[in-house]
Design a binder for these strands. Structure first.
Lengths: 210, 210
DNA sequence: ATTATGTTGCACACACATGTGCAACATAAC
DNA sequence: GTTATGTTGCACATGTGTGTGCAACATAAT
């Protein structure tokens, strides 16, 4: 029981590892500890100074990512279920850089359970949205609510995991996909997005400008 | 240069390995050679008598699977693009047992390329369908044809890989998902499937009957 | 019944990843 | 400038998977 205060550079290195792990694991969920450490500019041995375990590192990543997810889910307040869903998809997409690894890891047997637990609030929010949308007739009713909720989750996960986050209309694509799955025709979705241009805003604008 | 005729039991064992590999890899794309061989009732050593390599085994699986895929794609003749897409999805689904591993493997870095090559005909068929559907106004036009084609592929792959093939309305779910992505409203898709009950037929009927 | 063909278990070499112990070295904090 | 804190490289043990060689054994085909 001495100083207790972590050194400043150590704090930064820890953060750097989490950062490197995010991108490395998004590209390859089986990225080795060594690859992660090196891509953070540190040695493998040092990483073990910050995290007990490969598992501990990943668990921390999941927890952090889930917090962001859940916070967003709980911040959506639109009365219109279609709007709420669209906004949820768009907001989540903006976090893509922080969550892409999660979308990939969520498929890994070893972490499904933990991920599912951590994302329970988000899942509840989606379930509520679906129920609401089905009740007011704006979402499809040919599928049972739990089925539709799961389908929306899976499709969203796929789009996040399999789309280059930096590409042009990526956010727009994600939103339209989710709305289509919810049962809207594309014209309906299109009208919705036109009427509410704030939703798919801020798609990473500058690209080819060099 | 002697007999050249493979022994009957050896032929059967080879087929058994391919079969076991299909199911084992569908569950876990990293299933070990040993697990595959054992689940075929053979020893690891024997497997190497039939296949040079882990890679050789997987490549053969991909080729066989792709042949079935492609044959189906080329057998679809409906003039109506919506119908054609629906039927394609349904027919592919019926092959789920033979292709689920492919849907999973397709994500594995090591085999993406080979898989993509093998599935070129299917991909071309989908591209043609999308073009046709967009031209006659039955598919969405808010996304460029290549984007839409890729999206349909990805979503179909996800549904195949992430749905219990034996579950009740699985085939129906797959078809409806694809149609929604193509831009149909759920009511439109519903009407289409009602008008053509032959499409989503033969969903593995008997389940709970024990 | 003989024989070519398959199968099996075992040992081996190899590669790669995880996690730990330790001594040498750096440097942020004071 | 001293010192507690952090970093590094190296060796090591461990575990898991791949692919091969070989001798003993089984059996389909004739």
């Amino acid at each position: 029981m001495t100083t207790r205060t972590p050194r400043a550079d150590a704090r930064a290195n820890r953060a750097g590892i989490l950062d490197a792990a995010r991108t490395a694991l998004a590209a390859d969920p089986y990225a080795s500890i060594d690859v992660i450490a090196r891509s953070a500019g540190l040695s493998r041995r040092t990483l073990y100074g910050h995290f007990d375990d490969r598992d501990a590192l990943i668990r921390e990543l999941i927890v952090i990512g889930a917090q962001r997810f859940n916070a967003i889910a709980e911040s959506i307040a639109d009365a219109d279920a279609r709007l709420a869903l669209a906004r949820l998809a768009a907001r989540l997409w903006q976090e893509a850089a922080h969550v892409q690894f999660a979308a990939v890891l969520a498929l890994d047997e070893a972490h499904v359970e933990h991920t599912a637990d951590a994302l329970a609030p988000l899942r509840r929010a989606v379930a509520g949205l679906v129920r609401r949308g089905q009740e007011d007739g704006s979402f499809r009713t040919d599928l049972a609510a739990p089925t539709l909720a799961r389908l929306i989750e899976e499709m969203a996960r796929t789009v996040v995991a399999r789309t280059d986050a930096a590409s042009a209309g990526a956010a727009d694509l994600a939103v339209r996909t989710v709305l289509s799955i919810a049962g809207l025709s594309w014209r309906e979705a299109d009208a919705l997005l036109t009427a509410h241009p704030d939703i798919a805003l801020a798609s990473n604008a500058a690209e080819g400008a060099a």
